[in-house]
Amino acid sequence: MAQPAVVFKKVAYTYNAQTAFSFKALQDISAEIEKGSLTAIIGHTGSGKSTLTKLVDGLLLPDHGSIQVGNFNLTHESGHDELLKLHREVGYVFQFPEKQLFSDTVLQDVEFGPLNLGKSAKEAKQMALVALDTIHLPADLYDHSPFELSGGQMRRVAIAGVLAMQPQILIMDEPTAGLDPQGQTEILELAHSLHEQGTTVILVSHQMDQVARYADTVLVLNHGQLVFTGTPRNLFSQLQLLKQAELEPPLATAFAQSMADQGWHFDHLPLTVTDLGNELVKQLQKEGQHE
């Protein structure tokens, strides 16, 4: 088994502890995220997904337990300087990241991260150009104001702002929310290619089709507790578990399930449309042989 990039040890987090508004967001989470994996964190709204990812980047510190991220061990006592260094290892793409854009030009905005890391102006520019190249933004837009871009372009520039810091671990919190289908595919393909280049990608998602297609590991949260760790295939074959966590199976899986109810038999549970198509072709060929 590969070396883990992130290890959660009995992690708990409560918002607004000791007030009338205290809310237990996470309870007793123990899990590992493998180095170089593309791990999806799923769960219904309010299940603690974003809290968990904020803990990985040290934006929140756990009330109990500890989180091992690379060489850092985060507990409720972790200090300010340690967290600053942690931000170099972990990149965090927030929900609607285009909200964090502020500079006069696209290039300046992407340089912001590297400059914060103490890079020289020249290095920062170089890192920014590499990142902008990764997101396939036309070069003539580099000196435009980020506020002049389209929604999908702004999203990609904001992601470039995080990529420019060249993080070992990249967290993306619902990176496709509010984008058109093409924009969604672009972002996910980007995540996938980063994953193939060796970056550990943690993807928070609501869309099971994305999870089925891209993730190699899934963590399922339900009311602040970890209810499943494993492969998407394993998860989506457990209908009972999905129902309990208030999740829907991917479209292709649901389709196959309802066919199975009609008496069809599948050797492998299809997770994506391509899977489903292949399975159906096999079935139809079998039918043909019988006749």
Partner: peptide
């Protein structure tokens, strides 16, 4: 809070 978190994640102190 969200914007500050996002900028902190981008290495701002």
């Amino acid at each position: 809070q969200t914007i500050m978190d996002a900028q902190r994640a981008r290495g701002m102190d």
